[in-house]
Amino acid sequence: MTDQKTPCPSGGCEASSSAGGSRRKFLGAATAAMAAALTGCGTISKEEFLQHNFKELSKDEVLSVIDRLEKEYKAKYGKEVKVANTPPIPGVIFGYALDLSRCIGCRRCVYACVKENNQSRDPQIQWIRVLQMDKEEGVNLQHADQYYNPEEVPEEGHFYMPVQCQQCKKPPCTKVCPVGATWREKDGIVVVDYNWCIGCRYCMAACPYGARHFNWGEPNLPADEVNPKTHYLGNRPRPKGVVEKCTFCIQRTRNGRYPACVEICPTGSRKFGNLLDKDSEIRYILENKRVFKFKEDLNTQPNFFYFYGV
């Protein structure tokens, strides 16, 4: 199927769509050779190199890409990994609210997220970062510590503020991407096409929340810990050299389920729902509780809110 369109990320392949079979074959082989030369290794397949931006793929192309990925994962991990392509649900924009008066900083959410979303264990990647802050200082990043490690939490005089992707309505991260490998979906989830990401890390520099993480090394994901229920734009295993981030558990939430961090939190600090549904718990919070947005002055307009439930 990729031969039909002969897309060429490095540019300059216009003629090939009208080219004949043998020439096309030749071009394919040539591009594959070029792929090997450019990337400095031979493991990337011709199909992968020729794959277009996810947003531009036709239905059939998406299916064949997914088919290829599932085969690759099967070979790599020795088990069936399903890659879904579930679209946004019409009439839904996801919102999240975190109760700062309840969070005790136990980090259960961090590890539930790693497990659900197939983050690399080593080198370590964690999408949620829990900041311990001084009650006297309030939300003040100069007094935030993410490496706290006492016997028991919460510690006297402190409160805890987990930070993850805020799913901004005006995301600076997507604006700076030179290749359009990251964008905001209709349900408000900001996603990355790991096959289109070139690893320039501009988005990481642009994000004011430290929400994006880069695979500096080959991610290490033990085969028996792979979560086989994945989404193309979410928790499918990532290659080295791409950026990843929280997607509100796109593989769960687009199927109606709560995100993993909501379900694990022992204090019930994490709330999730449809911002467009006036009967949802998230709307109740926005309308009845004291709510703030993190770094509101930057006008990123997060769909992730912090509130005080007491």
Partner: peptide
Amino acid sequence: RFKALKPMPAPTPPEQIKARKGGAR
């Protein structure tokens, strides 16, 4: 009263994270 909990391990500081060699790309 909600009981205190032992926190899960703190994240590894960046200077201790070593990139693994090899792999695609």
